[in-house]
């Protein structure tokens, strides 16, 4: 870990001021940043601690949704009664992530901005375009069992590790931010992330010094909600494949379906085409299997992760089927 200075601003404007210092980074829960600093992947010279900014509340929005402060911890959000009642897919995704200790510390904003768990990204002795642009991707022809099958490029095949973001993408959640010059903006969680293309080191559309202040959930929908995470052990492991599925039925027909996947792409992956085809379709096992297949129609695997294509298709089908059954009651 390199030497750094530290400050804890009292409010958002002060934080936005503090982050202007060259080499500055925001730190909230620190569950990812500190690890990365220890292994020299991140070397900020100044830390702006935003963890105690007054952004930890969960409150109803005028539109009938929920605003979750960026500093609300994962534990706090998962335990919130309104989240559990109206957005169970979010509570489930959160509880499927990390461990109890980490969730107590990790924040909503930080969870969105956590970085990939690619082995090669984590080891500064090895080439990695995300960490060191132009150095090459070690995973492409290396051990890539945990890597992407959708949305990747030859420059980077790392996946986004968040569970929470997958549920938020499925829920059509938005984030609110403050840019360094004090402007606020609002954008969809699904639009926060950029695909790697030839610039995998640029992971989001956030501007330098832009601070996520809240996540906004739209009004609850009447839908069966399922989060299914497939992993190598029962807890405390990143997803091989995870699926957030929301299914709304009208009789035996699907009024709407939403599918987001984790563990398969550089960002929470919305299966847009599969969703489109599900609209109005008969809620049957065959329909759901077809949706799984559609989800991976464009998938490309790299050897060790070949299994993810079938696994993702099957997990999508399973999650849809469970969500439909849930909505049917």
């Amino acid at each position: 870990m390199r030497p750094f200075t530290y400050e804890r601003p009292a409010d958002v404007p002060a934080a936005l001021q503090a982050i202007r210092k060259p080499g500055a980074r925001f730190i909230a829960g620190g569950t990812n940043l500190l690890d990365l600093m220890k292994v020299d992947v991140e070397a900020p010279t100044h830390l702006v601690d935003v963890s105690r900014l007054p952004l930890e509340r969960i409150e109803a929005t005028e539109a009938g949704g929920l605003r979750i402060g960026a500093m609300a911890t994962n534990t706090y959000v998962a335990a919130n009664a309104r989240v559990r009642e109206h957005y169970p897919v979010l509570a489930a995704a959160l509880l499927n992530g990390a461990s109890g200790q980490l969730r107590n510390q990790a924040t909503t904003g930080g969870n969105l901005l956590q970085r990939t768990r690619c082995y090669y990204f984590y080891d500064v002795s090895k080439p990695c375009n995300k960490r060191s642009p132009g150095s090459g991707c070690s995973a492409l022809h290396g051990y890539n069992r945990i890597h992407a099958i959708l949305g990747a490029s030859d420059a980077c095949i790392a996946v986004h590790p968040s569970d929470m973001a997958v549920a938020l993408a499925a829920l059509d959640a938005e984030i609110e931010t403050q840019t360094a010059d004090g402007q606020g903006r609002r954008l969809k969680v699904a639009d926060l992330y950029r695909l790697p293309g030839s610039t995998p080191h640029v992971e989001t559309i956030l501007q330098p010094g832009e601070l996520i202040t809240a996540v906004v959930l739209p009004p609850p929908v009447s839908a069966g909600q399922v989060y299914r995470k497939v992993r190598d052990r029962a807890s405390y492991a990143f997803a091989l494949v995870s699926v957030a599925a929301l299914v709304e039925l009208e009789g035996d027909r699907i009024r709407s379906a939403r599918i987001a996947l984790g563990g398969v792409a550089p960002k929470p992956w919305r299966a847009v085409e599969a969703e489109r085809r599900l609209m109005g379709a008969n809620a049957s096992a065959a329909t759901f299997l077809g949706a799984g297949e559609t989800t991976v129609a464009e998938a490309h695997a790299y050897g060790h992760n070949d299994f993810k294509i079938a696994l993702a298709a099957r997990t999508v089908a399973r999650a849809l089927s469970e969500a439909a059954a849930q909505h049917k009651g």
């Binding site: 461990s99 090669y120 807890s235």
Partner: peptide, 24 residues
């Protein structure tokens, strides 16, 4: 896991190297 190009153990931390946790 050995990266066969380097002879290096690549999953060299307790997030990448899995042992049973309580839930298992």
């Amino acid at each position: 896991v050995v990266d066969q190009r380097l002879g290096a153990f690549v999953n060299n931390d307790l997030a990448g190297y899995h042992v049973p946790v309580h839930a298992d």
